[in-house]
Design a protein around this nucleic acid. Structure first.
Length: 426
RNA sequence: GUGGCUGUAGCUCACCAGGUAGAGCACCGGAUUGUGACUCCGGAGGUAGCGGGUUCAAGACCCGUCAGCCACCCCA
């Protein structure tokens, strides 16, 4: 007999955790729609080429982390490692970029990495993308929206915002040249990864964790000095608008992102509570990607939230959610069960918000009450022999010391309406 | 992909100079016949991740493998 385990890096989210996930998702949905963002649902598989072109041929994601395979027609497919590429592809394909678009999506992403806490091979992201606005007010809205979500979830005190501007492609090209010039003279002082990057992706050297490399960077050319005046003004505007909102941030001149499509504003929300996987949310502007995919030249900006990391953060702050039922229905015997069945059916129709769990499988009152208690339900609704023959029901409070009460079956609706009104007013 | 740590009942862990495993919690049943939580009593549950080796004997030692964790790396 072989036993099976989930594939490495693929994680089951169990019933103990799904209430927290659902409350997080509901909060996100409400915040997003309050800002006028609409959901878009996208395929999980896209052509490999789509990701290589947008994320960048020489990025780690494309070079060694993608789940790519040949389909039955021998075309190269890839399980999406991120959501922006597919979202932009859909924008272009359906001509949605003709008007301003505010979009979001949520779902699984796949990256072949070594698993660690906060890092899985299948993980989930909330992606938020905005198309059509080139000015920094759009960046501000995205950051403000994310902060609103942190507040809503109770994690805002545990997150710090870092921002930077990495300029246009032309700015970066000029800077890259200067940086490579400088670092080439000190090649032997760089860590191994940075030496390799010197030839492939030199900007990534900026966020190296090696102390020696960072020391070397102290006297390296600074990216901000290579930005054109317009970009500098936009970044200044962004910062002043963040001030206006009371959003505290740190300008991190070393903040560069690992995906090639970013330009100008980039930002990350990080926490010190998750170990090495500290980035909970990251994003920025990507003004040329739509055109790269053959669409009309359309500025854009967006960010992605790592949902496992967000959940981990909530759990580290002891934020918990439970979803106990309102009623746990106890029936004395087969006759009582048959009596209760149509009644419960009617109650469920009349009170869609009422959570009713019926005890199944019979058993003694004692064992049924044990189950009722463990379910966390607020009330036990009891159909005993006496109640059934007298057309009554008994309601026993399971969470308080109040007396149980027996009422006429016909008064149940009134009772429940009152209970729901009270529960919802809290 | 690199380095390190770990892997014993559902969960958290213990034991042991190597001699065929225990606790707490959880679970099931009972403590006068229609009522949970607290308490008491009883019960079930593991061939010690998997494979190989050393040994008279291995969960304990060695090797491999798988998985988790930590750091690097990567990014969300």
């Amino acid at each position: 007999m072989t036993t099976y385990r989930a594939i490495r890096g693929m994680v089951d989210i169990l019933p103990d955790d799904t209430p927290l996930w659902q409350s997080m998702e509901t909060a996100a949905l409400e915040v997003l729609s309050s800002y006028g963002y609409a959901e878009i649902r996208l395929p999980i598989i896209e052509s490999t080429d789509l990701f290589a072109r947008s994320i960048g041929e020489v990025t780690d994601i494309v070079e060694k982390e993608m789940y790519s395979f040949a389909d039955r027609n021998d075309d190269s497919m890839t399980l999406r490692p991120e959501g922006t590429a597919g979202c932009v592809r859909a924008m272009v394909q359906h001509n949605l970029a003709l008007t301003t678009q505010r979009l979001w999506y949520m779902g699984p992403m796949f990256r072949y990495e070594r698993p660690q806490k906060g890092r899985q091979r299948q993980f989930h992201q909330l992606g938020v993308e905005a198309f059509g606005v080139a000015t920094p007010d759009q960046d501000v809205e995205l950051i403000a929206l994310s902060r609103q979500l942190w507040r809503r979830l109770g994690v805002d005190d545990a997150l710090q915002l870092e921002v930077n501007s990495i300029g246009s492609a032309a700015d970066r090209a000029r800077y890259r040249e200067a940086l490579v010039d400088y670092l080439s003279g000190h090649r032997d002082q760089l860590d191994a990864d940075s030496q390799r990057r010197l030839d492939t992706n030199p900007l990534r050297i900026l966020d190296s964790k090696s102390p020696e490399t960072q020391a070397l960077l102290e006297s390296a050319p600074v990216l901000s000095e290579y930005l054109d005046t317009e970009t500098q003004a936009e970044f200044a505007a962004l910062l002043s608008q963040l001030d206006l909102l009371g959003i505290t941030y740190a300008v991190n001149p070393r903040l560069v992102r690992g995906l090639d499509y970013y330009n100008k504003t980039v930002f990350e929300w990080t926490t010190d509570r998750l170990g090495a996987q500290s980035t909970v949310c990251g994003g920025g502007r990507y003004d040329t990607l739509v055109a790269t995919f053959g669409g009309k030249d359309t500025p854009a900006a967006g960010f992605a939230v790592g949902l496992e990391r967000l959940i981990l953060l909530m759990q580290s702050l002891d934020i918990t959610v439970t979803a106990p039922a309102d009623l746990y229905v106890v029936t004395a015997d087969a006759n009582a069960y048959r009596h209760s069945l149509p009644r419960l059916d009617a109650l469920r129709r009349q009170f869609p918000d009422l959570d009713i769990v019926q005890h199944l499988g019979g058993g003694s009152f004692k064992s049924q009450f044990k189950r009722a208690d463990k379910s966390g339900a607020t009330w036990a609704l009891i159909y005993g022999e006496a109640e059934v023959s007298a057309s009554q029901v008994t309601l026993k409070p399971l969470r308080t010391d109040a007396e149980q009460q027996t009422i006429a079956d016909g008064e149940l609706e009134t009772f429940l309406a009152g209970y729901l009104a009270e529960a919802h007013s809290v």
